[in-house]
Amino acid sequence: MGVTFMVYSLAWGSALALMASGLSLYYSVSKVANFAHGSYVSMGLLAYLLAIAFAHWGSKITGFGIDHYAIFNISNLWALIPAFLVAGLVSLASFAGIFWPLMKRGATPLQLLVASIGLMFVLRFLMYIVAGSMNWITLWTPGSTTYHILGVRITLAEILSFVLLALVAGLIALLETKTLIGVSLRAIASNPSLAEASGIDSFKVQALAWFLGGGFAGLGGVLMFIFTGPPGGRPIVELGWMNLLSIFAAAVLGGLGSFYGTIIAALILGIAFNQAAAWFTIYLNVSSSLALLIPFGITLLTLLFFPQGLAGINWRKLVNKIRITRVEEEVVRR
């Protein structure tokens, strides 16, 4: 398990981080545990494939033919833009059309969650129509251009997932500290009713968060598909659903609604899952799908001790506690 595999694990984690941080971003303001988030992931992938199909209209783009054109290389990078936009707009539409009206009526968190399940089913069906009419229900991963840098094999998709994650993290950092709408975003997350009394247009701010969140999910979806292909040989539409629990695991481990906590959690889970998968197949000779036990186990255990996830841990206090116990031990020893 060399550097190459470590890079792959981290890149996988970054793709997960993109998807999960999107969820976190709008959860922080709207408090919707959105199960349709997986649909935005698949939407991004479909938009990417459709964009490439349109660019090569007339060639054999239906069925497995698309795999030949959709390979992830420099000249196809532009197709990430429609992936971002489509996923973002669908997310925005679902907020404006479903969640905002429900929130205005005073729906409980549980009702919002259940509504998101309904939305997930509807979106899934719509995607099946698109994927079905292009004959794309099952596809293989189209793969990505590979480079060798300093003796390390690295694919363009891997490089791009790091770059995109860094860009997204930077963008959000700038947005949340330097712009008024970003500060408003944090203000709503911190005290929604006061934000309303302060004249902040809650709808506009939340809509921005949903657009960005959905867009990030779409980007992560394309990258995840390039890395792993259809999960477990299932239809490509199920990509989002199959990754949804990992997304939630990362978001919950990071402390629901904490953007940076989620990114760190996703990277941790990415390494844990991929290393465990390799270990499971090589040493235990069991299916790598069981490796999901490890990230889920980590998340569940963390939740049991820190019900608010990583963001809820008071690190300074924890470190102090450890230090104090150590000092106490020394005192006792003397």
Binding site: L180, V183, S184, R186, A187, A189, S190, N191, S193, L194, A195, A197, S198, G199, I200
Partner: peptide, 25 residues
């Protein structure tokens, strides 16, 4: 302008950010 009795500031924002938000209005 309304100043509620409790929860009348944004606790996770800095004092300056709290004040800067008034620029919206």
């Amino acid at each position: 302008a309304y100043v509620p009795q409790v929860a009348n500031v944004f606790p996770s924002l800095s004092v300056e950010e709290n004040l800067r938000l008034s620029y919206i209005v």
